[in-house]
Simulated assay, not measured.
Amino acid sequence: MKQAKNITLSLMSLLLAGSLSAAEMPDFLRANTPETTVETPVGPLKQQYVRIALLLDTSNSMDGLINQAKAQLWDIVNEFTYARCGNGTRPQLVISLYEYGNDNLSSEEGYIRQVIGFTEDLDELSEKLFSLTTNGGEEYCGEVIQTSLDQLSWGKNADDLKLIFIAGNEPFNQGKLDYKDAALQAKEKDVIINTIFCGNVRQGINTQWKDGAVMTGGEYMAIDHNRQVVHIKTPYDKVIIELNGKLNKTYIGYGSRGRAKKAMQATQDANAMAMDEAVAVKRTLSKNSSYYKNSSWDLVDAVEEEEVEIADLKDSDLPEELKGKSEKQIKEYIAKKKADRSKIQKEINSTNAKRAAYIAKQQDQEKGELENALITAIKKQATSKNFTWDKK
């Protein structure tokens, strides 16, 4: 009897340890074992990505397209602040930029250049956009699509949204590489190709731009790339821009990149302001969102993301105002800047709510050809990955 009891206890131990399944239990033990519900531990939710590759024609006639991209980058980023994945989380947004069709580029590379790979660094992306210049050249759509498919890391998560937007105005079938072959490879990677023809809608259809999109279930769009973006000015713009200046003062540059990245932040603010005051406002709103991440150079973000230990920082890593300070003093300084940032962000949000209400009352709505084309396609295709958008 004692031996049978010991066997039973041993079998129960194996079951609890996971070495023995319920189906493998002897009948006498299963019959005397109460049914239990074992809850599967819930791990962290898997991060969903939105990966967008922008392929822009930078030939002579495309100055208007580049200007629209510079002005409307922030509209696209801000649109994602309302996005939700199927699991309720915010999607991670990364954007890549290619230029093609420019004589200044290498003919051996098909007049194609990766300006920047997938990045979440919005300041660097803005800097790269503003560095683009136009010049005449050969425009090979199939080849630039294929290049972006080969060079970029698109990931293997079936829940990610993977999009290519290619914009230009020459026939889509130019070059040695057939765009149809590139489209087939895009489908294999679950990448949707959207085409934006800069010109008449019928002309784009006749030159295969629509065909280039429908092969992967993408959208074909035609825009007037030379049309000036109409921005709606509001009484709240200057307030938000002033708050942006205060926001910048809460960033604490550290390490080898700190000073240069703070300078880049200011330069991109100036670039946005040079486009239009409204563009500067929209950039401020992007900087006020969760998509503006700077933990690689800002101590406030780095501590928040637990990417640095204050004790590990050398004096040479610190900005002038923190050199020679104790660990306690540094932590107090960071905490103060974090509190200041939180207060300023709340002010920006409340002021923008008034700005949005003012814009909603205007009869003339803001018109941005490239922005509207991108956002319309993104929101439509995002539904296939169970993305939703909050009401603004």
Rank of each mutant, 00 (worst) to 15 (best):
M1C: 09
K2W: 10
A4E: 12
L9M: 01
L11E: 10
S19V: 14
L20Q: 10
A23I: 13
F28I: 15
A31T: 14
N32D: 04
E35V: 09
T36D: 01
T40W: 14
P44I: 05
L45Q: 12
K46S: 05
N60V: 04
Q68S: 08
K70Y: 06
W74E: 00
V77C: 04
E79C: 03
T81A: 01
N87G: 10
V94G: 02
L97H: 15
S107G: 03
E108M: 01
E108H: 00
E109T: 02
Q114H: 04
E120F: 07
E120H: 11
E124L: 01
E127Y: 06
L132C: 06
T134N: 08
Y140H: 05
C141T: 12
C141N: 11
Q146F: 14
T147C: 01
T147S: 08
S153K: 14
A158S: 13
L161I: 09
I164C: 00
F165E: 05
A167C: 04
A167S: 07
E170N: 12
N173Y: 10
A182V: 03
L184I: 12
A186I: 02
K187H: 07
K189P: 06
I192T: 07
N194A: 05
T195G: 07
Q203M: 03
Q208C: 04
Q208D: 08
D211S: 06
D211F: 08
D211R: 08
M215R: 10
T216W: 09
G217F: 08
E219V: 12
R227G: 06
Q228L: 07
N244C: 05
K246S: 00
N248D: 11
T250R: 11
I252P: 01
I252C: 03
R257P: 00
A260E: 03
A272E: 07
M273R: 14
R283E: 00
K293T: 10
S296Q: 09
S296P: 13
S296W: 09
D298R: 13
L299M: 08
D301V: 06
A302R: 07
E305Q: 03
E305R: 14
E306R: 03
V308M: 05
E309K: 14
E309G: 08
D312Q: 04
K314R: 15
D315G: 09
S316R: 13
L318G: 04
E320Q: 11
K323Y: 10
K325C: 00
S326P: 02
Q329H: 07
K331F: 09
K331N: 10
K331V: 02
K337S: 03
A339F: 10
A339T: 15
S342W: 14
K346W: 13
E347C: 04
I348F: 12
K354A: 04
K354L: 02
R355K: 10
R355C: 02
A357P: 15
D364K: 15
D364T: 13
K367F: 01
G368E: 05
E371K: 12
T383V: 11
K385L: 06
T388P: 05
D390K: 08
D390T: 10
